[in-house]
Nucleic acid binder design. Structure first.
Length: 222
DNA sequence: TTCCAGGGAT
DNA sequence: ATCCCTGGAA
């Protein structure tokens, strides 16, 4: 079942409205002010499992204790786990530590790769986080789809798709790639905007279509 | 008080 | 397909 390509005009309108909305409505979050791949990674891993409000404190404390990949790599497992205490999903803290030790190993620069395919080889990094680091840290022109993005894209372009079904999720990745702006810099903003819209307006429980910049072109707007 | 969201590993 | 863990919505 081939996926109908999105009309260029719709694509352009989608991006412009989305980004314009973002500029006016986005929250001011610390990980949006940095391009440090390490910080972006830490924030993404924490955000996978916790609300923004809660991540804020943990993120600040974590970065204070482990300011760089090298600091984290040098730390004792116990201290890393203590810093994660209360966030849950502790396997991810272990993966993060493992990752830090891996990329700094034997004189390694402690740098993360910038390509999603390379990032995905690292422990704890799946398709979403790979895209997030590539886009948010390196400003690569990379797609990223988490459940927020999947929900927004399906509602706007393909209401028949069910993001929970793996087969449909693949199609949503295709849509995400099709709607990606030309430059990495603009993609950064658009990806952030997609996530923000999913978090603030087009939420799982409530569709606040009256405040949505995409309502006019949305296939499931009310 | 129950129910669900949320990436990745296995 | 299941598990991991917790806050917050219903």
């Amino acid at each position: 079942m081939p996926l109908k390509p999105i009309a260029p005009a719709a694509r352009a309108a989608f991006g412009r409205r989305l980004r314009a909305w973002y500029r006016r409505n986005h929250r001011d979050l610390p990980w949006r002010k940095t391009r440090d791949p390490y910080r972006v990674l830490v924030s993404e891993l924490m955000l996978q499992q916790t609300q923004v409000s809660r991540v804020l404190e943990f993120y600040a404390r974590f970065i204070e204790r482990f300011p760089t990949m090298q600091h984290l790599a040098d730390a004792r497992p116990k201290r890393v786990m203590e810093s994660w205490e209360g966030l849950g999903y502790y396997a991810r803290a272990r993966n993060l530590h493992k990752l830090a030790r891996h990329v700094t190993r034997e004189g390694g620069p402690g740098a993360l790769p910038s390509e999603p395919t390379e990032l995905r080889k690292l422990p704890g990094i799946g398709a979403y986080t790979a895209g997030a680091v590539a886009s948010f840290a390196y400003e690569k022109r990379a797609a990223l789809v988490d459940t927020n993005v999947a929900r927004v894209l399906s509602r706007v372009f393909a209401p028949k798709l069910n993001p929970k079904r793996p087969r449909d999720l693949k199609k949503l990745w295709v849509i995400a790639e099709q709607t990606l702006p030309r430059t990495g810099k603009t993609a950064w903003t658009q990806n952030q905007a997609l996530m923000e819209l999913g978090a603030l307006v087009c939420t799982a429980r409530l569709k606040r279509c009256d405040e949505c910049p995409l309502a006019r072109m949305c296939k499931s707007a009310e």
